[in-house]
């Protein structure tokens, strides 16, 4: 198996759609670590991240026919599969987890900043640190915890339009720090 071979994106996608084993190996060699870097800051636990990575590659294998290159690059498509699988995993775990079903302390707001976890030095989270507190919370809730803009508006007690503008401004800033 020659994993040093490189493909154009169009060729790679074509081979993946034919379920070509070498192409999948290439994909794993080149992108598993990048995707793992996306998954880990969301799920926070290595064991869980391993399960998610496995599911992500199986999903890529199963759903490659539905990848549409006119809507974006292959990596973006995989990134979103990885992010969604990570958020789903965190949610299904927190549903099973009785610890999390205990009531929060008295006088707690809908504000969830306090519950946010600590994995600050990885991937996009590292960049997140550079944002203002208020922006960081919104991106955290939207990108890392998968809440819709409507849910965030209700949780934070801010109008929907403001949530949307603040998140977009935050993302533009985030991008400037990405270099």
């Amino acid at each position: 198996m020659d994993t040093n071979q490189s493909y154009t994106e169009a060729d790679l996608v074509q081979l993946l759609k034919e379920r070509d084993n070498r192409a999948f190996n290439y994909l794993y060699e080149h992108y598993s670590a990048a995707l793992y870097g996306i998954i880990l800051p969301i799920v926070n636990e290595q064991e869980v991240a391993n399960d998610v990575l496995q599911e992500v590659f199986l999903n890529i294998w199963r759903k490659i026919d539905s990848y549409d290159p006119t809507k974006g690059r292959l990596f973006t498509w995989m990134l979103n599969i990885a992010r969604n699988a990570s958020i789903d995993m965190v949610r299904s775990k927190s549903f099973q987890n009785t610890r999390k079903n205990q009531p929060l302390q008295e006088n707690v707001n809908w504000n969830t900043t306090a519950q946010l976890r600590n994995m600050d030095n990885i991937g996009l989270r590292k960049v997140l640190e550079k944002l203002k507190d208020e922006q960081r919370t919104l991106v955290e809730l939207a990108y890392f915890r998968g809440y819709t803009h409507e849910e965030i508006a209700a949780m934070e007690g801010i109008p929907l339009g403001t949530v949307k503008t603040r998140i977009r401004t935050a993302l533009i800033q985030l991008r400037n720090y990405l270099e």
Partner: peptide, 19 residues
């Protein structure tokens, strides 16, 4: 997309080998 991909590749974390 390319910028994001480059960032992800630069910030990649190797998963355990047995995976």
């Amino acid at each position: 997309e390319k910028q994001l991909e480059a960032h992800a590749l630069n910030n990649s974390i190797k998963p355990p080998a047995h995976l």
